[in-house]
Amino acid sequence: MARITLTVNDRERALDVRDPGEPLLFVLRNQLGLTGAKYGCGVGQCGACTVLVDGEAVRSCLVPAGSAAGRAVTTVEHLGTAERPGPLQRAFIEQQAAQCGYCVPGMVMSAAALLRRNPRPTGDEVKRALDGNLCRCGTHQRIIDAVLLAAGTR
């Protein structure tokens, strides 16, 4: 059992993990109840688990929880709620950019990271930024439109 301290959504959380190599994804979901990040592949190929670490989009299925200690972790839950969505989330809702919605939290986080470093992306820049996020339902066009809408470049 190892004790680690994480800063998640601006709050410090001390927790015990049995395996310091346990991916951040499972710690967020099962110990902190932050189930927005989703398990899709576990090997960094789908983007469903995307969260921000120090403002960068990372695949939380690849990050050992221990290595996130001392860094700022931001999950989709921090951007707003269903009742009070943040601006990027509002754009997704406006575009109805979800079918099953399983990929969507990861899409939102990858897009949030993009907008931090490039507030006014073009359509092609959005596509490139979301290249590592897969959607099986084919919601891509709406997701692109949502990000552009949030950026004011649509």
Partner: peptide
Amino acid sequence: PRPDVAAKVAGTHRFVH
């Protein structure tokens, strides 16, 4: 609009997972 999209976007929609 569909009633579940907001929660899906907020990450609070409950999936079986």
